[in-house]
Write a protein that binds this DNA or RNA. Structure first.
Lengths: 198, 198
DNA sequence: AAGATATATATCGAATCTATATATATCCGA
DNA sequence: TCGGATATATATAGATTCGATATATATCTT
């Protein structure tokens, strides 16, 4: 499921420019499950064009740079369905926010509080966007997938609101007495060593 | 928050090998928020060694390849705290599963059902692991972050169980009458075009 | 009037992922 | 008991993707 497949998917729902595909990933209905930047989208569109899976037509606009509108071909639609037939790869997630909360004790309590506060605000804003997203009226896959996102974001926001004080308290305790952090389980397992340090 | 920072973070909780760091991301306490493979971890550890942020000692084992055990230096600990002080980058997520549900109508209903079934099983299994994870006993950041993961996974599994029939029904409807999919809002906006197709 | 934001494409270098190679031990089912 | 899968461990080449930047102009905000 690479960026090429992403482009095929978006184009299967209507013509679009690279810029619009990016927006679908950023604010649109894909925002909660597919991140992609210009640096991957534009090369992907060129490759798909070369392979004959999409067509391009240039549209002039006044006051703006010309845009390249892409459309799916029959071969492209076939490529999409065959990509969808394969078993899904495991999700890949990288969250700086959760990395930071994990090491919350290493931050000043004030910063931790602000971090969580900002996150809650972000989640609530995205939830509002999602709730009045026009996709909700598209039944089937799109509505189902948006509903999943709403359910998950809601759970996240609720969790943060109910538990934020625990994280701040931990950071505060650490500011006062500076306890060393407990080792992570799974690390340093006492396994038999044949010889010592080399 | 690159893989180097990830390594510093794990090592701040105890010595570890590259292999162990991978496991922390795969099954361990980082599994729900940080994905990283060997191809990024091993080069990162070498770079950190060169920069003097970690030290390495080789440990011989019988019947197994020797392992390289890494430990954080004082400079490394400093580098970690300064990385944590910076504002978090937005989450990056790529979910093949949600991509597939979005285009659920393009799949046979039987396949959609199996897809969701497998996902629920996966989520429940991970939830069981998380619930008896030893990290839960580590108060502060680790427990908070694990709790977040549990809350989110639970919401996801519940949503899938309550709504799976909707997705399957949509796929079934499509198998019968083969409706074309509605266009995505945000695409094809009727903007003034100066000239026609070039 | 300045500065930010939006529209639009493009590309380079860095970071990251996927797949594979190496080597050995154990565990499990046919 | 033989083969295959899984686990322990590191390493790297090649493909993909990310992040930052450049270009150009209109509009919106302060």
């Amino acid at each position: 499921m690479d960026v090429k497949t992403l482009c095929l998917g978006v184009l299967s729902r209507g013509e679009a420019t690279g810029y619009e595909i990016k927006k679908v990933c950023e604010e649109g209905p894909f925002a909660h499950f597919y991140a992609a930047g210009f640096g991957s989208i534009y090369p992907a569109l060129n490759a798909l064009s070369d392979e004959g899976l999409i067509t391009m037509r240039e549209v002039l606009q006044d006051g703006r740079p010309a845009k390249k509108v892409y459309a799916l071909t029959a071969a492209g639609r076939l490529a999409l369905t065959s990509a969808l037939a394969e078993p899904p790869a495991p999700d890949r997630l990288r969250s700086d926010f959760l990395f930071m909360t994990f090491f919350g004790e290493l931050l000043p309590a004030r910063d931790v509080d602000r971090l969580v506060e900002n996150r809650i605000a972000f989640l609530r804003a995205r939830l509002a966007e999602m709730r009045n997203c026009a996709v909700q009226e598209l039944p089937g896959g799109p509505a189902f997938t948006l509903g999943y996102g709403i359910a998950v974001y809601e759970a996240a926001a609720d969790y943060l609101e109910t538990h934020r004080h625990e994280l701040v308290a931990a950071s505060l305790r650490n500011e006062i007495d500076g306890h060393p952090q407990a080792p992570l389980p799974g690390l340093d397992a006492a396994r038999p060593e044949k010889a010592g340090t080399r």
